[in-house]
Design a protein around this nucleic acid. Structure first.
Lengths: 325, 325
DNA sequence: GCCTAGGTCCCGTGC
DNA sequence: GCACGGGGCCTAGGC
């Protein structure tokens, strides 16, 4: 029952060519793989996509541009594609079941009830339902989605009194989107296996300090990272300075705040209780707010300017050296 | 120079009708309003949209479904629309300039450099550019955008060696998206003026306690909200108990953590210094983690179970009563 | 502009 | 499963 992987698009509208192609997803009659038929401008019907599992063909059309069609196939199908009429509901459900990403744009009202409650009256929004059944509602402005549901939510598509409704639910959380008209609906089979690489994070700062401890201070020797302090806290780096004095380092990738200083101060107090001796405490961050600096002084916590980018460079330089050895 | 408002769609692909319409936005020659031409399946050219400012017509086609077209208009235009060839670049730029929301779907690589640095290799993603020039890049899975730029970023659309590139920049932040093919591109003129109403927030909890202080304790009298503590902190509610004893209340809409307790403890210490007398401290939240409860005991901070929904109901009941008075 | 605190935060990690 | 802390957090509100 494994399905053929067809990528990337099912409902297709070419922006560049001024020719539109509306492509339907239909189940293949020979196996359970989805296949694609396309209505082209002159009424001709083409089938695109991988039919590997049906026919042993290895052809895969990635992007359907009318003038760049390289592989076409007339699928042996009894039902005439042009007579197939699928409702919004059927298409959207099939697309979801096939693991496509759905984008819907239309006039809707939205209700949410869960950890909080929200209501949003009529307006035109973009709704995205992803492969992992996360759902996002975006208004025409603003970085953040106005409503959402994280992955693994239960997605229900409903038609009720002619209205298209999406219900996305998780434990004690319900999101309901009611479209007042049929939304513009697009489905995409998207393939994205690339690894997201992130540099200059707090983790890299720690790695850099462990590799090159004099970033903190000459003679500093890290002993452990992430040492537990008290019942729940933990310091980023625990070590000794050149005089063998216990030293804790807290790293921040962004401007340090009073809260950061207070937290470190707490750790100092708890470590003092644990060891009967006050440790040195160093806050390493690219900068600190004014009030944080004041607090640093009163709490006798030292500050070391350290930017995540510097640390990232050190890591990469070291990795480069390692590669040459 | 005011432009006609055309809503909601410019590049349109009907999902329901199995017929696609590729619609171009072009400037009107008589005035500065944008107008729309559509290429229909039989090669006929229609113009849709409000031409109010040109002709005094009040017609506005909101949704272009081929079988539901109610208003068509042959625009008196010398250049033949079918000969107008606009590149992806021109169309996307025009759409942005016109305040439309752009959605692009395609194979791309992404680089970010700013507060951190990130790289993402080839993969198919959804890019949304909103009216406020915020930009989001969504992978096929995951609630959160993999890359983004918040509102008011500078958006540049570029074609270089046949590749479509988006650069979104803010102070010291650059996001670069390179499409390896022409992305599927859709533009929508979205209208969304609805007010987002949120209930059961921490703000509502505070309002409820101010309205009905015995939610905290019988005899509790709030004096001020958001009182400053020390140099930087502030407590949610500052008041006195039935015995006139200074009492501070910290509200949390979610399970209280050790951090929340520690923060409140800090406030208690600072208020003790300020007044020479230790205040009572009450943490009001729907629940608390185990270790938070332990900390509450050692810090002699009291706990009051209070859920945001209860508070929200109280507010609404009160508002209902107010309406009847 | 800086800074603080909230968020339906989400998400990873460690226990 | 709970709990804790990071995040390019974003965003709103105060000063």
């Amino acid at each position: 029952m494994a399905s053929c992987r067809l990528r990337p698009l099912l409902y297709h509208c070419s922006f560049a060519s001024k020719v539109c192609l509306h492509v339907l997803l239909s189940p293949c009659s020979s196996c359970s793989c989805p296949w694609i038929i396309g209505h082209f401008e002159r009424g001709q019907v083409f089938a695109y996509g991988s039919l590997r599992r049906c026919l042993g063909s290895a052809c895969l059309v990635l992007h359907l541009f009318p003038r760049q069609i390289r592989h076409t196939y007339s699928h042996p199908r009894t039902a005439k594609p042009s007579t197939v009429k699928m409702s919004w509901l059927d298409k959207a459900r099939k697309a979801l079941a096939a693991g496509h990403v759905l984008i819907m744009v239309g006039l809707c009202i939205i209700e949410y009830e869960g950890r909080a409650v929200s209501k949003l009256g009529e307006g035109e929004r973009i709704v995205i339902i992803k492969k992992d059944r996360s759902i996002l509602v975006h208004r025409p402005i603003g970085h953040e989605p106005v409503n959402w549901q994280p992955h693994r939510s239960k997605i229900e598509l409903i038609e009720e009194n002619g209205r298209r409704i999406i219900k996305a639910s998780r434990a004690n959380e319900l999101l309901k989107i009611v479209f007042l008209n049929e939304p513009e609906t697009y489905a995409f089979q998207l393939s994205d296996d690339a690894e997201f690489e992130m540099y200059a994070s707090e983790v890299e700062m720690k790695e850099a300090v462990l590799l090159q401890p004099d970033l903190i201070e000459e003679g500093f020797t890290p002993l452990t990272d992430e040492r537990k302090v008290g019942r729940t806290g933990r310091v980023d780096i625990f070590g000794v300075d050149r005089n063998g004095c216990m030293t804790v380092v807290e790293l921040k990738r962004r401007t340090a705040t009073t809260n950061d200083v207070k937290q470190l101060q707490q750790y100092v107090e708890e470590l003092s209780r644990e060891f009967g001796k006050k440790p040195r405490a160093i806050l390493a961050a690219p900068s600190a707010t004014k009030s944080a600096i004041t607090f640093l002084k009163t709490a006798k916590i030292e500050f070391r300017c350290l930017t995540p980018k510097t640390c990232s460079k050190i890591i990469r330089r070291r990795n480069g050296l390692d590669a040459h050895l």
